[in-house]
């Protein structure tokens, strides 16, 4: 691609990543959550691939994305197991004052970040998983096409 496309996409990568992280971390307060935020972050990777093409180390990057995909899913399941003292997927952190544990009363409020119990942690795990899964899929297809063309 041309120098303009490369420069603009290099500048835009950081805001896109930060917006994706914002959508993930505010998933229990505003529209969004792990799935849309992870998709936004994967879009940044797609833009980088489209602008800069593939490099020699992309096979290892695909393996790293695959590893992060597994880590995200395992963290999600582990957070489900945390609630096992009552039931699977029980929200044990909500309203107990520890991390993300402020209690909320019914009704509209301006939105407090330290609420939600296990929900923000699960959102983050799912966000990592979606980001890594979509990036790994794109990298796998692109690497395959490059091998066929060479």
């Amino acid at each position: 691609m041309s120098a303009i496309v490369k420069t603009v996409s290099a500048f835009m990568t950081v805001p896109m990543m930060i917006f994706g992280l914002y959508v993930i971390l505010h998933g229990h307060l505003t529209p969004g959550g792990g799935f849309p935020g992870g998709a936004v972050m994967a879009t940044a990777v797609a833009m980088l691939i489209a602008a800069f093409g593939l490099s020699q180390s992309d096979a290892r990057k695909k393996d790293a994305f695959s590893l992060f995909e597994s880590i995200g899913l395992l963290a999600f399941i582990a957070m489900a197991f945390v609630g096992l003292q009552s039931t699977f997927f029980a929200n044990v952190l909500a309203g107990h004052g520890w991390i993300f544990g402020s209690s909320v009363s019914y009704g509209p409020n301006p939105g407090y970040l330290e609420t939600g119990g296990v929900i923000p942690i699960m959102n983050f795990a799912v966000g990592i998983e979606v980001f890594a899964a979509l990036s790994a899929v794109m990298l796998a297809i692109m690497l395959h096409r490059r091998e066929k063309h060479d």
Binding site: L29, T30, P31, G33, P108, N109, G111
Partner: peptide, 22 residues
Amino acid sequence: APIFTASRNAWMSLPTPQALTL
């Protein structure tokens, strides 16, 4: 929308179909 952050009232559309649509 079924989100309480700075919402005007509590008359909200059903949240379960939205979750399953996601």
